[in-house]
Design a protein around this nucleic acid. Structure first.
Lengths: 238, 238
DNA sequence: TCCTAGTTACGTACACCGTACGTAGTGCGC
DNA sequence: GCGCACTACGTACGGTGTACGTAACTAGGA
């Protein structure tokens, strides 16, 4: 152990202010809000310490008094958008409540298309994440299964929401700083896919393509996936 | 449209070589292999054009003759590890076959801990992805549901595998270039979580914590999640 | 056969990134 | 009132992706 660097504390365990010295010109929340604003408007890659500082009208290095590392900034950002979850009063219908939670998560991700990318790298138990977890458990109160199963349900459902929504918005986030539109990029990718399938190298895939008439309703696909997951945990449906 | 930049072709649609000029000193596959090697050994953040060039013993800018943008490199990397999927002969038991596919995906991600992070940003229909998709459809041949439902099953299952495995390995990837160990970082995070739960602010979460006796077997949790998803699509189980 | 056009390889250069470090000034706790 | 812990911030360093220019090379058309 001797000589080894100590593990820094989680950002949430670090006190925002200790009392001594000049009054800070901005708070941790200000920084997070600025970062979120930048990510929303100009994409996640535009979230640099310099840009945040510019947005806040302060020097770049001042930020490090509030946020020790950039990775902590990412946790702040995720926590900030986590606050957008409405922690409504559970209705007693756990399926409906969880569907509502899922819909809200999806909506949040649509508003902040960079969220899935950050979630893939950060395992955060931020205050708002914990609050949301607790809220989900409250919604699941009527469900008569062990608590461990409930957390598994929450994890599974959140995972499905994330991956499904991430696929929808991946192109949006990618084409952020590029001189062509999302639709154009999608068209190119779909054209390639169509050409590949047409070669005959993927017969079953081709059949699946041929089967579908008209455009897929992504919202409907999403809804079905959620229902399936909920079914898998519903004692009355098995 | 006039004056607008054209959308570049998907990397897979670009021919590897057109015939004129000097013989290339390395191939696209060489670049992908070098990138994967670096990512495995030193983490995804170490995958820079300069490092790849050093690994290949060539100039940095030479790479751009083979890979127009770095994002394309990411697609190459994902396709390269996609080749590690064993496309076995379907047994006729679609559940067993899909479980095997899922286990392989999980194993691949454990070998290449950077995969989830890349998958969150790249929507790729690379050759190996298409082959894997076709293979999954072959495994699902005995399942008597519409083709659309089968693709939904594949998507849902892959999503679950990704999110579950990503959570396991997120810390591994994060602590790559940092002077403390994964265990130490996890300990700090868990300590914080324990402290928060102990405050009493999250009673249901606390109850869930108290309920579990002994450490959770992540592998078992994973297996259960898969079974649940498969159940949701199994006509004989509903 | 030779010429030329398209490709490859590669060095230089630029704008940008995270952040280590040093300095100056502020205001709470003793 | 003093000291010290804290804030703010400028400078600088080593890294990044990649635009651009140049030289060498080779296949196809004359």
């Amino acid at each position: 152990m001797a000589g080894r660097a100590a593990v820094p504390e989680v950002i949430w365990a670090r006190p925002e202010r200790t009392g001594r010295g000049p009054k800070p010109a901005f708070t941790r929340a200000d920084i997070a809000a600025a970062a979120v604003r930048i990510a929303d408007e100009r994409g996640l890659d535009a979230v640099s310490m310099r840009h945040i500082a510019a947005e806040l009208g302060c020097g770049t290095m001042s930020l490090y008094n509030h946020v020790p590392r950039k990775e902590d900034l990412y946790e702040l950002m995720l926590d900030a958008v986590g606050a957008e979850h409405e922690l409504f009063e559970p209705t007693g219908d756990w399926r409906a409540d969880m569907l509502r939670n899922a819909a809200e998560t999806r909506a949040i991700m649509r508003r902040h298309t960079w969220v899935p990318r950050l979630m893939a790298g950060v395992l955060g138990f931020s205050p708002n994440t914990l609050r949301y977890l607790e809220h989900c458990l409250a919604c699941l109160e009527p469900l008569d299964v062990p608590a461990g199963t409930k957390t598994e349900l929450i994890a599974l459902l959140n995972g499905v929401v994330t991956t499904y929504t991430a696929n929808d918005i991946a192109t949006v986030e990618r084409t952020r700083s590029v001189p062509w539109s999302v639709e154009e990029e999608n068209a190119v990718r779909m054209a390639y896919l169509g050409r590949q399938v047409a070669t005959g190298a993927y017969p079953r895939l081709a059949a699946a393509f041929a089967e579908q008439s008209g455009p897929v309703d992504l919202e409907e696909v999403f809804r079905r996936a959620l229902e399936r997951v909920l079914d898998a945990f519903d004692p009355e449906r098995r």
